[in-house]
Design a protein around this nucleic acid. Structure first.
Lengths: 243, 243
DNA sequence: AACACCGAAACATCCGAGGTCTGTTGCAGG
DNA sequence: CCTGCAACAGACCTCGGATGTTTCGGTGTT
């Protein structure tokens, strides 16, 4: 195994073992390099890699620090990974989102504070009557982010955030090509908001399912892969509990 | 922004734009460095970082290649990230898994091939009557991996795989400290298998929910955080569909 | 045809010399 | 005594070259 990879594991172990706690500062390059038994160049490669996944944070002129290691920060790096996937796998991501989003929405209906629900409502009102597609999608992202945050589970929130990225592009496309999409999105958002405000988790879950499924259905047709009859059936299963 | 970070983005763009396709070979270090306008050292840092997240694959003596970029490969890198989280956030990961696992199990009941179901059954039989805790957990991981794979969604499968890592440790701990855990796990696995074999998605979903919830409940108690009455209530919501 | 050897190509690692940024220290002025 | 500016030291940033290792493919022998 290359020495750089060894160094990555060593640093990882130092953090996991507790020798380096979140926020701690690493020894200076030269010192750490000697301690791990490699050159500064190789060590820098290791540090750079750990930087990309937000484990380390280097500040020029100051030093290298361990980040907070909070789930939202680390899962956030997943967005970078998701960016590499294109149309052919977007449906798979969307399918996962369709599982998580309703669950998050239901949890939000139970856990969200009254203040946060008020802010959620304001978000809906901020949108103009005839918004641009870009504004609508941006508002949509904020809306769902606030709900995910309201679930009280940071891991769930970050995961949904990462999954929303690739579908955002699809939605913009949808907004540009499908007539009633804008109005329908607004209606569904309002319904989700009202269900959360009424503290009705199952109703909120159902509306969220309908909402995501709408995007999924449209994308499936748009991609011309709507020839699998078993998938819609299976996906209606979770929604059935809404009754 | 450091030149290395710029290089990372440049390479990323080259891949996303299609200039570099999966499996393609990158120009040699010196050449690419000149083209991106930086030194080999800095370029190597960028390449190393992209290697960590499995976007690039460097083979000494041969060249640097773009990986297949398949979801399972890229999401697999998330395991590395998840490793950094400890007890305090394991419950959050488990909560997400509790959402995904039942959904994946239901999908598996619909999509899994008969051959795969047969293999799933064999997996259950491979276990000795009184297995070690380690063997049981290893078998458990294989069991759930096969089900996740049977869902037909590679993203879902990889995600569950990554989430299973940290809970595996917890389960070993559980097996060592809780008496009936081993027997209970076997019963639930058998029930899940039978539900899948019978092509009963809702039944499979419910058993999966019960299964994961068992681990969650135990862990919550073990960590001494079982003092939040709202959480169990909310979590029973999705499980209610079992009736 | 199969095998062993050899050389070119490409990455791995290291080194040392500037460059740039940041936080701190010390001095002068109010 | 407090404030503001300037110089300094520490730490990371970037570079380019030299040397070691590994792999691939061509060549010659058996």
């Amino acid at each position: 195994m290359p020495v750089t990879d060894v160094a990555i594991d060593k640093i990882k172990d130092m953090i996991i073992s507790g020798e380096l706690a979140p926020g701690d500062r690493l020894p200076k390059e030269a010192e750490l390099a000697q301690r791990l038994g490699l050159s500064r160049s190789s060590l820098r490669e290791a540090v750079k890699a750990l930087c990309l996944i937000r484990v380390l944070d280097v500040r020029q002129g100051d030093g290298t620090y361990v980040t907070s290691l909070e789930p939202n920060l680390l899962l956030d790096a997943m967005t970078f990974v998701v960016d590499f996937h294109r149309d052919d796998t977007v449906l798979d991501f969307l399918a996962v989102r369709r599982i998580l989003e309703p669950a998050a929405t239901a949890l939000a209906a139970l856990h969200m504070s009254d203040d946060d629900i008020t802010e959620l409502g304001q978000l809906l009102g901020e949108l103009e009557d005839s918004p641009t597609v870009e504004a609508l999608v941006a508002n949509d992202l904020q809306f769902h982010r606030k709900i995910a945050d309201g679930s009280g589970n940071p891991v769930l929130c970050s995961l949904l955030d990462s999954l929303s990225g690739p579908t955002a592009r699809a939605r913009i496309w949808r907004g540009l090509t499908q007539e009633g999409a804008v109005a329908k999105t607004r209606e569904q958002h309002t319904a989700i908001y009202e269900a959360i405000a009424a503290r009705e988790p199952e109703l909120a879950r159902s509306w969220a399912t309908v909402h995501v499924a709408g995007v999924e259905q449209w994308l499936r047709n748009a991609l011309g892969t709507a020839d699998d009859p078993t998938v819609p059936d299976s996906d209606d299963g979770p929604a059935a509990e809404a009754s």
